[in-house]
């Protein structure tokens, strides 16, 4: 029979009860309550489910757009895809930033009294944000379907999936920014930032040529917007846009992990 003896380490000898930790806190109740919270938040619903389709109706449904080709579909579909990405990006950014908002409220301290691991908590927040992002894409596409967007069926599916899955880069952005600007109203700062990035990345209006276009091409939304619209435009994928997405994903991802590690060292 042996027993462990405490030595001069920071924490005592442990014999963790595996059962309590096995699930690490992932469960449907948690997910359901988190989703309910999102839908209860009027501002979130307006920004992610109302504004993107509204922008689409304003910018994308001019008569000439419906009859002008944009590759494998019309220009209305082009604007629709951009707005779907815009909505998904808003959803994931605000979802990521919620982590630091809840930290500022002390909720993460309260959660540390449960078996829930901080990494699992972040994963669930991102998953919930992605669910909202998917809803945003679907709403914009439904409005697009009703309002004259035309494209091949494959284009609808692939662009929708890429817009949705690609927006996870902005969940990392929201996490990172939330940790850097820990305030309960962090989205009031990020909202205008995202609007500027959307213009710079060519999401609202085409970039064209010139100095601003050159600058715009290195901003974080440019690459993702190009990739998402590529199946519609049909010109293939440029190396520049892939590099843009990979680079910014690495920056935001590494930043979020770095701040997260720093943050969980002290609650």
């Amino acid at each position: 029979m042996t027993t462990t003896l405490r030595t001069g380490t920071a924490s005592a000898v442990s014999a963790p009860e595996a059962g309590a930790r096995r699930r690490g806190g992932v469960n449907l109740t948690f997910l359901a309550i988190e989703l309910k919270r999102l839908l209860r938040n009027r501002r979130t619903v307006i920004f992610t489910l109302v504004m993107p389709p509204m922008f689409f109706l304003i910018f994308g449904t001019a008569g000439s757009y419906r009859t002008t080709s944009a590759g494998h579909g019309n220009v209305t579909a082009y604007v629709m895809i951009s707005m779907a990405l815009y909505g998904a990006m808003l959803a994931t950014t605000s979802g990521g930033a919620m982590v630091s908002v809840e930290r500022a409220q002390g909720w993460s301290r309260q959660l540390r009294l449960t078996p829930l691991r901080p990494s699992v908590y972040v994963a669930i927040k991102v998953a919930v944000a992605m669910a909202l992002g998917l809803a945003s894409v679907v709403v914009v596409y439904l409005v697009g379907l009703a309002e004259g967007a035309h494209a091949d069926l494959g284009v609808w599916i692939v662009t929708g999936l890429v817009a949705w899955l690609g927006s996870i880069v902005f969940a990392a952005f929201g996490l990172f920014m939330g940790y850097l600007l820990p305030a309960e109203n962090v989205m009031q700062i990020l909202g205008p930032v995202l609007a500027v990035l959307s213009f710079a990345g060519g999401l609202f209006v085409p970039l064209g040529d010139g100095v601003f276009a050159t600058i715009g091409k290195v901003t974080p939304l440019y690459g993702l917007a190009e990739l998402v619209r590529a199946p519609l435009v049909g010109d293939g994928v440029t190396l520049a846009s892939v590099a843009n997405v990979v680079l910014w994903a690495a920056v935001f991802g590494a930043g979020a992990v770095w701040r997260f590690r720093h943050d969980t060292a002290r609650v």
Partner: peptide
């Protein structure tokens, strides 16, 4: 050292 019922704090909470 910190020990809670002979466990490390995180394990005692879990």
């Amino acid at each position: 050292t910190v020990s809670v019922f002979g466990l490390a704090p995180r394990d005692a909470i879990a």
